[in-house]
């Protein structure tokens, strides 16, 4: 493909731009690759006092385990420290949060997108304010009542709290998706004999799948990545992955524990990698959906 004369950039500009981009790619990707590589070494290599190159070659790993790679960090975390339990908890929380968020959010977002009245605007504005509030401020509001009513520590509590915290964002995103669906569609369904809800279920939802999937991805990320709520509201046996990693850090004195954290960090990041790989287009479109409508 040849560029037309009008689009040609000066040489210097092209060089500067390209080298900046290469630099950015290194900055963005290198930490992950480095940690992935290091997660198969022992602590003495990952944090090497002698020479940073040890993290690459791993002389201590060879000395301690006999091979240049070891999965002892993963074994320690997943089996010894029962990280699998946290992973199961995370899975429960994330699946429930995504499903409930989407159910509530599609209903609410549809209503907001189709109501011509002023209160719809006010509700959106209020949820924008809710979106602005740091989750930890809400957590400090939950603790006392949850202790009183014995709600603290259970998975369902954390799930419904995460659903609620996700709602403002979910509503905004889905409302902007629903607004892109012509009103003619639900109106013709209603003329054809549907009630509002039937029109929503039979006609709008089938068209909305891309938007629902995109919003679901972001609900997933919010629930999966949450630390403030899950760390404060779940008891130790119900802990999800992220607070579990944080708890590894509290006990770094024990030798090898850091490697538990490193290996579980990689374990947590791997699904996110796959997510970006498969859903890159949806993530990009989701991010822009809100912005375009502004």
């Amino acid at each position: 493909m040849t560029t037309r004369v009008a689009d040609r950039r000066p040489m210097i500009l092209r060089v500067v731009m390209s080298s900046f981009l290469v630099l950015w790619l290194i900055v963005a990707a290198f930490p992950f690759l480095w940690t992935l590589w290091g997660s198969f070494k022992v602590e003495g290599d990952f944090f090497s006092k002698a020479d940073w190159l040890n993290a690459l070659t791993g002389p201590l790993t060879i000395a301690e385990t006999g091979g240049s790679f070891t999965s002892s960090g993963y074994y320690g975390a997943w089996v010894q420290e029962e990280f699998w339990r946290a992973a199961m908890n995370s899975l429960t929380v994330v699946v429930c949060v995504v499903c409930i968020s989407l159910t509530f959010g599609t209903l609410g977002g549809y209503a907001l997108s189709r109501s011509p009245y002023r209160y719809a605007f006010w509700l959106l504005l209020i949820s924008l304010v809710f979106r602005a509030m740091p989750p930890i401020t809400l957590v400090s509001g939950y603790l006392l009542p949850f202790f009183e009513w014995n709600l603290w520590g259970h998975l369902p509590t954390a799930i419904i709290v995460l659903v609620a915290i996700n709602q403002p964002f979910t509503l905004w995103m889905l409302t902007s998706f629903f607004r892109n669906i012509p009103k003619d569609l639900d109106e013709s369904a209603m003329m054809d004999g549907c009630s509002r809800f039937q029109a929503f279920r039979h006609v709008i939802i089938p068209v909305m799948w891309p938007g629902v999937i995109t919003t679901g991805l972001f609900s997933f990320l919010l629930a999966y990545n949450d630390f403030a709520v899950t760390a404060m509201l779940l008891s130790k046996e119900n802990q999800t992955m992220i607070p579990k990693i944080a708890s590894f850090l509290g006990t770094t004195q024990t030798k090898g524990n850091v490697m538990f954290a490193v290996s579980s960090v990689i374990s947590v990041t791997a699904p996110l990698f796959l997510l970006v790989m498969f859903f890159q287009r949806q993530i990009v479109s989701g991010l822009t959906a809100g912005a375009v409508k502004g």
Binding site: L21, W24, F46, F227, V265, V276
Partner: peptide, 23 residues
């Protein structure tokens, strides 16, 4: 390029910060 660029944003904040912290 977009794929690689998305990584720092998508990664769990606690985890992303830990990775940098260790480095």
């Amino acid at each position: 390029v977009i794929f690689v660029s998305l990584l720092p944003m998508i990664v769990t904040p606690l985890v992303g910060a830990l990775i940098l912290f260790w480095m």
